[in-house]
Design a protein around this nucleic acid. Structure first.
Lengths: 197, 197
DNA sequence: TTAATTTTTAAATTGGCGTTTAGAAAATTT
DNA sequence: AAATTTTCTAAACGCCAATTTAAAAATTAA
């Protein structure tokens, strides 16, 4: 009945589970697979976690909390143009992702296997997060910094799609740093591909 | 042993399967679920399809063929600027998607459950498709139409991510037409959000 | 109305799933 | 060294999975 420093083994289980969930998908990943990856029997897992879904819950909500924290710190900053705010929001998101690409992939692809009421809670967090990016874009339009003709929903979904897919192709060993990547994505979104005249 | 006009019931099965796979994910969707949706017993399905995976295979490769066809017809056109080509490629992709949003969602999210060698074949088709969009962007850079500073991989992945996520949020009953949506996405990508001075 | 074909079913097969239980082994604390 | 806690295991439970088989029912064609 100790509650402290119990983390080490449990975290090991969760990290390996993240790898497995990313690789095979939550539904296709079995607890026996997971146990084998850890070199133990499936039954042993249950000394560390309550259920398969608890692992998914932990992965999804921990990531959500980090994304939220990152966005909040950007929102607190003052005297930023809409472009700057957007850029910082994007960079923050990518930095959070880059810290754990595996968990990020699970967060993005597997959250739908959460059961109620967790699923509802998760989706609420997500829609809230997206809306806060949408607000940044709307502020940009209101201030005359962004075109008023743009479809805001399209803009924010494009941004969010792009962020969400990054864990699929971003190579952390490659030359490019999360901050650079974020800067470039923000630049592309704000200024486009077209060469200035 | 008839081979003709057998399509009707089989297609019905495949369409319902697409809905189910989109909703629950391939691995979590059972043949019993599917049968129930059709009002028959699970065993009856096997008069129409060979296996669960055959359904997934059909859905994924049929969509892939349609995307390919669409892109090829754009590539054939001549005397287009890079922006125009990109725009037409994007519009084509969205039109194909809009014709069957359910199958598109399966194509995007569930293809990874294909087993070898189908999975390999599918991924080859996909990388080829992406590379053809990348070529469009590179041509734009080569002609001086696009900035030379852009990260081409980032650009094409952003585009592709955005296209891939559309079936998740695009509402076919909403006011916006696939062609308009494509035009706007292309405009955002090429010209950015920033207001022209 | 037969004959042929398509569609469906009940029943079984084989196998994997998440999880529980009772307790052994190993590691840690006292 | 003894006591406590953590980690692990073998064995089982009940359930659900995809698929096969042989045959019945429904539909279509001759």
């Amino acid at each position: 009945m100790s509650e402290v420093v119990n983390l080490s083994r449990k975290e090991q289980v969760i990290r390996k589970a993240a790898e497995l969930f990313k690789e095979k998908g939550y539904a296709a990943a079995s607890m026996r697979d997971l146990a084998q990856k850890l070199g133990i029997e499936a039954a042993s897992l249950y000394s560390h976690i309550k259920s398969k879904e608890e692992i998914l819950h932990t992965l999804c909500f921990d990531m959500a909390a980090e994304f939220r924290r990152s966005l909040e710190s950007v929102e607190k900053e003052q005297n930023l143009t809409a472009s700057e705010k957007l850029q910082k929001g994007i960079i923050g998101h990518i930095q959070v992702m880059a810290k754990d690409l595996t968990a990020s992939a699970v967060f993005m692809n597997e959250h739908r296997h959460l059961s109620q009421p967790s699923l509802r809670d998760f989706l609420l967090l997500r829609i809230n997060y997206i809306n806060r990016f949408k607000t940044m874009i709307e502020e940009g339009v209101a201030k005359g910094e962004f075109k008023s003709t743009i479809d805001k929903k399209l803009a924010v979904m494009t941004l969010f799609s792009s962020l969400n897919w990054m864990p699929m192709w971003y190579d952390p060993d490659a030359a490019i740093e999360p901050e650079d990547l974020g800067r470039q994505l923000a630049d592309m979104l704000v200024n486009g591909l077209r060469k200035d005249k």
